[in-house]
Deep mutational scan, measured.
Amino acid sequence: NDEAKKEAEKLWKNNKSEDEIKERLERAGISPDEAEQWLQELR
């Protein structure tokens, strides 16, 4: 999970869309709710 979150953070810094980041997190096995929460922390 931490690995996926690091990846999400990297994508965020590269200005990827939130949808793309969420999709990537969900593919890594993170629930949509958790993915949404993680994005809010990044904002």
Rank of each mutant, 00 (worst) to 15 (best):
3 E>V: 09
28 A>I: 13
33 D>E: 13
14 N>E: 14
16 K>A: 14
14 N>Q: 14
4 A>M: 14
15 N>R: 07
7 E>S: 05
10 K>Q: 11
31 S>P: 11
20 E>N: 03
25 L>K: 00
33 D>R: 10
14 N>V: 05
30 I>P: 00
21 I>C: 04
12 W>P: 00
43 R>Y: 05
42 L>F: 14
1 N>V: 14
5 K>W: 15
4 A>P: 04
9 E>D: 04
33 D>F: 11
42 L>T: 03
2 D>I: 13
33 D>L: 11
43 R>D: 01
7 E>A: 07
10 K>C: 15
22 K>D: 00
31 S>M: 06
21 I>D: 01
22 K>H: 02
37 Q>S: 09
39 L>A: 02
23 E>L: 13
8 A>C: 15
36 E>S: 08
35 A>K: 01
9 E>I: 13
32 P>Q: 08
19 D>K: 12
20 E>Y: 13
11 L>Q: 03
13 K>N: 07
1 N>M: 14
11 L>W: 12
17 S>K: 05
12 W>K: 00
19 D>A: 14
9 E>T: 09
30 I>F: 11
22 K>R: 14
17 S>I: 04
15 N>V: 02
26 E>F: 15
19 D>W: 11
8 A>F: 07
22 K>P: 00
27 R>N: 09
1 N>R: 15
35 A>G: 01
42 L>I: 07
28 A>C: 14
1 N>K: 15
24 R>S: 13
7 E>Q: 06
40 Q>T: 09
7 E>D: 07
7 E>F: 12
19 D>I: 10
23 E>G: 07
28 A>Q: 09
6 K>C: 15
24 R>K: 11
20 E>A: 05
30 I>M: 13
14 N>R: 05
41 E>I: 11
10 K>R: 14
22 K>W: 06
13 K>G: 05
4 A>K: 06
24 R>E: 10
6 K>Q: 08
14 N>L: 13
13 K>A: 10
8 A>I: 09
21 I>A: 02
23 E>T: 09
34 E>H: 04
9 E>P: 00
29 G>A: 02
28 A>R: 10
14 N>Y: 08
22 K>L: 12
9 E>M: 14
7 E>N: 04
30 I>Y: 08
33 D>K: 11
19 D>S: 12
16 K>G: 11
13 K>W: 12
42 L>R: 08
21 I>N: 00
25 L>R: 00
1 N>P: 13
33 D>H: 10
36 E>Y: 07
30 I>A: 04
23 E>F: 08
33 D>I: 10
28 A>M: 15
39 L>Q: 01
34 E>N: 04
39 L>E: 00
38 W>A: 01
37 Q>W: 06
8 A>D: 01
31 S>G: 07
12 W>S: 01
4 A>R: 07
10 K>N: 10
17 S>V: 02
1 N>D: 09
2 D>Y: 13
32 P>L: 08
21 I>K: 01
24 R>L: 15
2 D>R: 10
9 E>Q: 10
3 E>Y: 11
39 L>G: 00
32 P>H: 08
40 Q>M: 13
23 E>I: 08
22 K>I: 09
4 A>E: 04
42 L>A: 03
9 E>S: 09
22 K>G: 00
42 L>N: 01
11 L>M: 15
36 E>N: 08
4 A>N: 04
43 R>F: 09
1 N>Q: 13
37 Q>G: 04
2 D>C: 15
13 K>M: 10
3 E>L: 11
31 S>D: 09
11 L>G: 04
36 E>A: 10
10 K>D: 09
2 D>E: 12
26 E>Y: 15
5 K>Q: 03
4 A>H: 07
3 E>N: 09
40 Q>C: 13
16 K>S: 09
12 W>G: 00
21 I>L: 03
28 A>L: 15
41 E>S: 12
24 R>F: 15
9 E>F: 14
11 L>S: 04
30 I>D: 02
4 A>S: 05
18 E>C: 13
41 E>P: 00
18 E>D: 10
27 R>E: 10
11 L>T: 02
27 R>L: 13
17 S>M: 04
26 E>N: 08
36 E>H: 05
10 K>E: 13
34 E>C: 13
34 E>S: 04
23 E>R: 12
16 K>Y: 14
8 A>P: 01
6 K>A: 10
36 E>G: 03
7 E>R: 04
15 N>H: 10
37 Q>E: 09
33 D>G: 08
31 S>F: 03
1 N>W: 15
25 L>F: 02
13 K>T: 05
26 E>T: 13
10 K>L: 13
40 Q>S: 10
11 L>E: 03
